[in-house]
Structures are given as C-alpha cells and as structure tokens.
Amino acid sequence: MSDSKDFLLGVYDDEDVLLKAVGKIRNAGIKIHEVYSPFPVHGLDDELGYKKSRLPIAAFMFGMLGTTLALTMQIWMLGIDWPMIIGGKNHVALPDFVPVTFELTVLLAAFGMVGTFLVSSDLKPWKDPKLLDIRITDDKHILAIDLGKNKAVEASEIGNVLKDSGAVEVNDKKVEE
C-alpha cells in the first residue's frame, strides 16, 4: 500500500470556476495536492497559497558567481599570468572588464536559474510523465487531492465538496509509485 497513492480528481472546464473552487476547498480544510491546467491561470498561485518562489535568490547567487568568475579570470589573465599593455591602459583596467563581466553575470544567472528550476521541479528529458488525466493537455483543469494526506475528512465528503464547487466530474485515481 505504501507505494501507491490514492487521488481524488476534480475535473473543471472553466478557470473562473476553478479559481473560486480552490478557495472553497481550502476553506473546507482539505489539502490540495496540485492543480493541473492546460494554460497558466492568473491568480491560481495566490489562491493555492503557494509560498513565494526562491528561484530569484538562486538567480542572484549565480549572477554573483558569474561576476566573481569573470573578474577573477580577467584580472588573473591580464594582470598576473600574462600582463600586456593594451591601448596604453593599466594591466588591470576595470572599465575594460565591464562588458565581459556583464555577459558572464547574465549568462550564469540565466543558466543557473534554468538549471535550478529543472532540478528543483525534477524535470529531465528521460522523465516518464505521470499524467493524472490526459485531458489536462487539452481543455480540462484537474484539481488533485491526495487522500492519504486528508485522512481527517471522509473521501465521499471530499467528493461532495468538489462537486459543490463546480467540478464537472469527480474521479478516483490510484498511482503506482
């Protein structure tokens, strides 16, 4: 039993109904596992009460890493390892280093952010996607409730709340881990 999860899926065909439903369900004390939608629904993050993404922090860190690397590289190359006089400037002439530093900062921030996102959301080319309902790739929104984490409320009760909130279907789905 421990390696399978039991989900209750509410199927919605309108994002406005879905948005209101999320609030109602959370108010009823039911924990929502995830909402799957074929397109981004504005305001859904707020309704689900998601914590703020920490991705910008990663981006900032990678950006700073890029700045440091770029400056270290240029100062070492042009100032220490092989000093050359270029255009009569100092060996370590900081204004010259700005374009490269800028580019490496942007490059590392962008790649770092994408990489962090892929790792943290476990996305990879060889990942076998487990779709709870194929219709989320078309025109239906799926609101998934993990029954294992909602033991305090009866499954039938949760089904009723989903129906009341405007779900066009309520399905049971077992997922093997």
Partner: peptide, 12 residues
C-alpha cells in the same frame, strides 16, 4: 552612459 564612456575611454 557606459557605452558612451567605454568607447571614449578605450579609444582615448
């Protein structure tokens, strides 16, 4: 600002 500065500084 920097584009103007860098070119002038570099060409000298």
């Amino acid at each position: 600002w920097f584009s103007q500065f860098l070119l002038i500084y570099y060409a000298n």
